[in-house]
Design a protein around this nucleic acid. Structure first.
Length: 579
RNA sequence: GCGCUCGUAGCUCAGUUGGAUAGAGCAGCGGAUUUCUAAUCCGCGGGUCGCAGGUUCAAGUCCUGCCGAGCGUGCCA
């Protein structure tokens, strides 16, 4: 929190010294090495270069006029022109006391709330959700929580795959081979079976293929029977999707599938043709990008030679709808890396088609989940892993661990802990790596109790809760967080200071997460926080301390647990008081 | 062929405007416990950041070339 104030003062001072400087580049960051101080600014070296000034001399003149004495010890110039800031303990204590009084939790909400649409998850009707959907779902949900927490208006929209040629085959299967009992027991399993059955038959029997084509045409023309079956398939699929979203704690404001945009597709094609952006080529309507080297070799088809639109057209119609309906400042698509070319095409077409449209368009892409063999994650027999099975296994494995560690808890309690730990471990393992890299899925690593894992963070939280449980059981249960603000603080032990200062950086980290769409920054911040807490916990007795020191340490524990719980909450991970 | 992304410790991965001595965890070795939950903490060893050039006061980070991997590349999404 103090970093904002230092940064603002520094920017003001730089403006005074060098009025033409771009202060948005004048940033203050945590020191890479604590021996230099708490925060540093490297920006003066860049500015000096830009303005052809001597960097040391610029740093000197800025330092002379810079007044941060209420927050910092003397500012130091180091090396080629680094500015180093070391916080005053009194300033750190004041911020902590503000948090004790409930004035803030180490961050400021955005002064300029934006409307942000996030498109994520997007499973296909009549197919099970599988590992391929978890990154989009977990990452998208986490970004939605982050932006909401920062004070923005967020609209989440699940763009279901509820339309397409597969429904011809599904309709044939439904009409000829449906097993109602199987459908009742496991709707998606049965629909998947029907699809496979017909799909295979299509390869060998021309009649089946022809029937599928006819059923699809009937559906597209609005045949009531086929429409009813199609709607039934969607409803059944959504029930199963919702069960999984329920387990993951993921919610959507809207669930407007591809079919929702069917009535709008023709208009999109017509407009692009009228605007001269699309033309006929090899029987299809195509947009070319002659002037963009990256896309020159990759024209986009917006109308197939059979007269049907494809996903580029649907995405354009969807984009226009969102812009017109919600007037967002930003639209974020969370999909895997393989769709990069597609979104470059869609965004490029949209910019040309709707040059006045203002939203920032972001494709937030992520890498593949690999098995231990380095190939895309599958079962041993090579089958796709269903998300429901994956969650079951996570909970079961976590249950085994909890039972081994804490057999005296009753079973219901152990199941509840296992649910939180298991689901949390899956989510954390997914959010921890840089989203752009592929990562290797490992049960042992994500459920490990040491290292950068959900169980480690959750354990840190339970240790704090345990202190407060002891406190409430004791006769000295006189602690109130707000009261800690009225007592003198000393912060004499280095572990206390390090923990306290780390708490202050939460806002900085959340800003980085939202600017770059990278929750792994928050994961690492929380891991470091848990580590600082563990060292504090080892060296600083809390309940055994007395007087003001006891109050101060209880408050540090309290605030740390709040930040842990809130941070994990932003990652979509629940906490538990016991493990 | 072209395009995108990547190549960091034995393994799995971090690495915020280019910034100070490149960091974690695991694995290995050695310590700490009559515990506020040791599901923890501390210490040690381990690196030519794929290779070669270039830009810069400063490059894991930016540019060029090469080697290697994954993905994409006109009628799936």
């Amino acid at each position: 929190m103090l970093h904002y104030l230092i940064e603002r003062r520094l920017q003001e001072t730089v403006t005074a010294v060098c009025p033409s400087a771009d202060t948005s580049q004048i940033l203050v960051r945590p020191c890479v090495n604590s021996q230099f101080g708490d925060y540093q600014s490297n920006a003066l070296m860049g500015l000096a270069k830009q303005k052809k000034m001597n960097p040391r001399r610029l740093a000197e003149s800025v330092k002379e006029r810079l007044d941060v004495g209420d927050y910092c010890e003397a500012v130091e110039i180091a090396g080629a022109g680094f500015l180093n800031f070391r916080l005053k303990n009194s300033a750190v204590v004041e911020v902590l006391k503000g948090a004790c009084r409930g004035e803030h939790l180490f961050l400021q909400k955005s002064g300029k709330p934006r409307t942000i649409v996030i498109d994520f998850s997007s499973p296909n009707v009549a197919k099970p959700m599988h590992v391929g959907h978890i990154r989009s779902t977990i990452l998208g949900d986490c970004l939605a929580r982050t932006f909401r927490f920062m004070g923005h208006r967020v609209i989440t929209d699940n763009h279901l795959g509820d339309w397409g040629t597969q429904f011809g085959k599904l309709l044939v299967g439904w009409r000829r081979h449906l097993d109602p009992a199987a459908l009742a027991a496991d709707p998606i399993g049965e629909m998947e079976r029907l699809y496979r059955l017909v799909n295979e038959a299509c390869d060998s029997e021309a009649e089946v293929l022809e029937s599928a084509r006819q059923e699809l045409v009937k559906l597209q023309k609005g045949d009531p029977d086929n429409l009813a079956i199609w709607q039934k398939m969607i409803a059944l699929s959504r029930e199963q999707f919702d069960a999984i979203y329920g387990r993951l704690g993921v919610q959507f404001d809207f669930c407007l599938g591809e079919s929702y945009y069917n009535p709008r597709l023709k208009s999109v094609v017509d407009q692009l043709v009228e605007a001269g952006m699309a033309r006929e080529s090899e029987g299809a309507m195509v947009v070319f990008f002659e002037d963009i080297s990256e896309l020159k070799a990759h024209p986009a088809i917006i109308l197939k030679s059979d007269g049907a639109a494809n996903y580029t057209t649907t995405d354009l119609a969807t984009l226009l709808y969102r812009v017109e309906t919600w007037r967002p400042d930003e639209i974020i698509y969370v999909t895997d890396a393989r769709q990069q070319l597609h979104f470059k095409q869609v965004f490029t077409i949209f910019r040309r088609w709707q040059p006045q449209a203002r939203p920032r368009l972001a494709h937030v892409w992520f890498g593949t989940i690999l098995g231990e063999d380095g190939k895309p994650f599958k079962t041993r027999s090579g089958a796709i892993i269903k998300l429901a099975d994956l969650l079951d296994e996570a909970e079961e494995r976590a249950y085994q661990v909890v039972t081994a560690k804490n057999p005296e808890l009753d079973e219901e309690r152990r199941r509840e802990i296992a649910r939180i730990v298991g689901i949390g471990a899956i989510k954390y393992a997914d959010l921890l790596p840089n989203r752009q890299s592929d990562y290797v899925f490992s049960w042992d690593k994500m459920l490990a109790l040491n290292g950068n894992t959900a169980p480690y963070l959750l354990y840190a939280y339970t240790r704090i809760r345990s202190i407060f449980r002891r406190l409430s059981e004791s006769s000295e249960a006189v602690y109130q967080l707000a009261e800690a603000a009225d007592r003198p603080w000393s912060l004499t032990v280095v572990e206390e200071v390090v923990l306290a200062k780390h708490l202050l950086n939460l806002g900085l980290v959340l800003e980085a997460v939202s600017e770059e769409y990278r929750p792994n920054y928050l994961c690492n911040y929380l891991y470091e926080l848990a580590g600082h807490f563990a060292r504090f916990y080892e060296t600083c007795p809390v309940l055994k301390a007395g007087g003001d020191e006891r109050f101060q340490r209880l408050a540090l524990c309290d605030l740390t647990s709040q930040v842990l719980q809130m941070g994990l909450g932003i990652l979509g991970i629940e906490t538990t008081d016991q493990m």
